[in-house]
């Protein structure tokens, strides 16, 4: 009781400075603290929420569906004003959505799409980027580059797949495979496709294994940048010139951009984690105020090549 009076007076003090609205407590349930992309996402979210005078509490499900369910239950029991959930498993979002809806807590799912979308209760929203864009932009740009290099007579390459349990890995792989079936890109042949679990180290070893088959190849498509970097390191160690191979990743991480500036990485796709984090806050605040929000809100992916990188407002620095 004392605590809540204290909290109330503190809130009042804060309110005096932030006249906009009442300071809210937002519960943020992330799937895994160790994941780099999600780190940028939730830090972006937190910074934005705090700049608006709201408090954000983060919990980590450590990739455990059951733990996340309990954490959300805990948030609701402790009376948070709003919830942002990055689901551990997109197909397990339903129960959390239902729980939040029954308790009347405005909820936004971020980055990971509740599957099927009908499992998300009415009045809730999903903020993310559309994965169909990422793999398509990436592979199509690689196709254009291979054509520009005069390899439209036939090009062979490898596809490094992320963790097959994640929707992004599956979708980006489908995207890539669909692009190489297009009339203008069907000169591209994927001669090997395996998972390296999103990891640089595993991609390094997998690429070296592929190199040991002695096959000639022209491109390497990776579901994320970390695996693209691993492949690059393996190829460089084997003495292959990066001018001869077109390499593409997804995420536009700092390391990937450094490799792009250094001329090793040719294509990546920027998933604006910060924009997703801010989008989630915007959406959840609207829900709290009783405004209507579209069920799906997509922050666009952006194609990044060395040319685009030079003038990109956020990434060139």
């Amino acid at each position: 009781m004392k605590k809540s009076i204290l909290a109330a007076s503190l809130t009042a003090a804060v309110l005096a400075q932030v006249p906009a609205a009442q300071a809210l407590t937002i519960g943020y349930a992330t799937h895994h603290f160790d994941d780099k992309f999600s780190t940028i996402l939730r830090n972006g979210s937190q910074a934005y929420a705090e700049s608006l005078g709201h408090e954000m509490i983060q919990v980590d499900a450590q990739l455990d569906v059951g733990r996340q369910l309990d954490q959300v239950r805990n948030f609701i029991a402790n009376g948070v004003d709003a919830l942002i959930i990055q689901a551990v498993d997109s197909t397990a979002a339903g129960p959390m959505s239902k729980m939040a809806a029954e308790a009347g807590v405005p909820t936004v799912f971020v980055n990971r799409k509740p599957t099927p979308l009908e499992s998300m209760a009415d009045g809730q929203a999903y903020v993310a980027s559309n994965e169909v864009e990422s793999g398509t932009y990436q592979t199509y740009q690689m196709c254009l580059q291979l054509r520009a290099e005069g390899k439209s007579g036939g090009a062979r390459g490898y596809l490094l797949v992320g963790d097959l349990a994640s929707e992004a890995a599956v979708q980006r792989t489908i995207d890539a495979e669909q692009v190489v079936q297009l009339d203008m890109c069907n000169f591209m042949e994927i001669i090997g496709k395996e998972t390296a679990m999103w990891q640089r180290n595993e991609a390094q070893d997998l690429m070296t294994n592929w190199l040991s088959t002695g096959e000639d190849f022209d491109f390497v498509i990776a579901n994320n940048d970390e695996m693209a970097l691993g492949a690059i390191q393996a190829m460089k160690a084997a003495g292959i010139s990066m001018d001869d191979v077109v390499v593409g990743g997804v995420d536009a991480t700092d390391d990937a951009l450094a490799a792009m500036r250094g001329g090793d990485l040719d294509v990546t796709v920027f998933q604006n984690a910060k924009a997703q984090g801010e989008g989630a806050i915007d959406a959840v605040l609207k829900l709290v105020n009783g405004e209507s929000v579209p069920r799906e809100y997509y922050v666009p992916f952006e194609l990044i090549t060395p040319e685009i990188l030079k003038t990109h407002p956020e990434l060139s620095k």
Binding site: N201, D205, T208, N209, L211, S212, T213, G214, A238
Partner: peptide
């Protein structure tokens, strides 16, 4: 021998 393959066989498990 396929030296590259022999090398990666050991390299990938050495850590």
């Amino acid at each position: 021998f396929n030296e590259q393959r022999l090398k990666i066989i050991i390299l990938q498990v050495s850590i």
